[in-house]
Amino acid sequence: MPDAVPAAATTATIALEVNGRVHRLTVRHHWSLLDVLREQLDLTGAKRGCDRGECGACTVLLASRPVYSCQVLALQVGHRPVVTVEGLGESNILDPVQQAFLDNDGAQCGYCTPGFVMSARALLDDNPHPSDDEIRQALAGNLCRCNAYGRIIQSMRAMRDAAR
């Protein structure tokens, strides 16, 4: 008989770098990065919305790029650093993106906000002066069911304009 595939999930021990700290974790092979962030590390900023890579509420930065953490296995992360919304700003100082969302009412219920903030952060790290179209493109993978898009875009514009 060929070597049998185990019926039950197998586990692995990994070193996961999240928000600048390396965690040694034992994870099951089928756990997503989102599972590990929320269930093992108690980092509940990234939200489980659709769990299918469509809504963007779980967006985190992987090697500085926004990704859907629900559609990346923890084992796929490897040595690449992960940044979640908890990793932005200082203990009592918000990241400028968070402050801009606050100042411009860039959130209604707030469920999608951490995901939007991470996509926005990634854009501004790449391109501090994005055009309106670049802002819309960068946020295109995040959905807001409250339909606060106008205020979200306004938050980004305000930040860009303040940076000029």
Binding site: G53, G56, T59, L62, R65, P66, V67, Y68, Q71, V72, S119, A122, Q137, A138, A140, G141
Partner: peptide, 9 residues
């Protein structure tokens, strides 16, 4: 194609 998050992965 798709969204920024999917294009990155």
């Amino acid at each position: 194609l798709a969204t920024p998050q999917i294009r990155n992965v």
